[in-house]
């Protein structure tokens, strides 16, 4: 989950130094209350530090009444860890996790609108669609809408493939991701609701990592 290896990186004095060096893609998952204005509170944590959000999705979570943000950024682990602490500091945020691509299962949804006559005439297209796992959502006389879910490269490839056949519109959703190691939020929320939450809720990265912390 969000427990990270305790690297010996020192925070560089200038944010500029860390850009580009050692940055990788992180998916940040934030559990929050459903509150007007919270999206702004979270978004400005990134914009204040001039960090670009690659993708942002908000949705309900496995727990009723609790919302879940999925945010994708390219940064160093050091910076992402600090961002998550700033996010967790917001009053209405319950928890923020960050994960690399190998720690999550993620998908994006893409929609493609193409002229129906082109599709009907050219059998090749149908074969390509099958190859890319796309399916027709709407078929009308004038246009057809296909849907594909997958990772970025897959949905991008289908754009390239459909372009020669007069792709009219293309749109792709933000990323949604499931954390492989997560046990969900039900048990945690119960802890949060207690006046004095148990230690397992206070997921300070140092906790239970004594040996690593103190070996410095």
């Amino acid at each position: 989950m969000s427990l990270q290896k305790n690297d010996q990186l020192q925070f560089s004095a200038s944010a500029a130094e860390s850009v580009g060096s050692g940055s990788e893609e992180f998916t940040v998952t934030v559990y929050t209350e459903n509150q007007i204005g919270l999206l702004n509170r979270i978004a400005i944590i990134f914009s204040r530090r001039k960090i670009n959000i690659e993708s942002l999705n908000t949705s309900p979570s496995e727990v009723e009444g609790i919302h879940r943000f999925t945010i994708v950024i390219n940064e160093t682990e050091e910076v992402v860890r600090k961002l998550c602490r700033q996010i967790e500091k917001q009053v209405e945020v319950l928890k923020a996790y960050f994960n690399t691509a190998d720690e999550i299962i993620w998908q994006e949804l893409a929609l493609y609108k193409v002229p129906t006559d082109e599709i009907a005439e050219k059998v090749k297209v149908e074969r390509l669609l099958r190859k890319y796992g796309a399916r027709a959502v709407v078929i009308r006389k004038d246009y057809t809408i296909f849907e594909a879910t997958g990772q970025r490269e897959e949905t991008d490839k289908l754009v390239k493939v459909l372009e020669p056949y007069g792709l009219i519109e293309f749109v792709r959703s933000a990323r949604v991701a499931i954390i492989k190691a997560s046990h969900g939020f039900h048990a945690k929320l119960k802890e949060f609701e207690k006046t004095a939450p148990g230690e397992e809720v206070i997921e300070n990265e140092y906790l239970n990592k004594q040996a690593e912390v103190f070996s410095m």
Binding site: F11, R81, K82, R85, Q86, E88, N204, Y206, V213, M216
Partner: peptide, 23 residues
């Protein structure tokens, strides 16, 4: 070696890396 006592977890390691954080 740095011992940092703070109530705010986001201050730990923000600017100076703590050897022992006492949150």
């Amino acid at each position: 070696k740095i011992i940092h006592l703070d109530i705010d977890p986001s201050e730990i390691d923000k600017n100076v890396k703590a050897t022992v954080p006492v949150w």
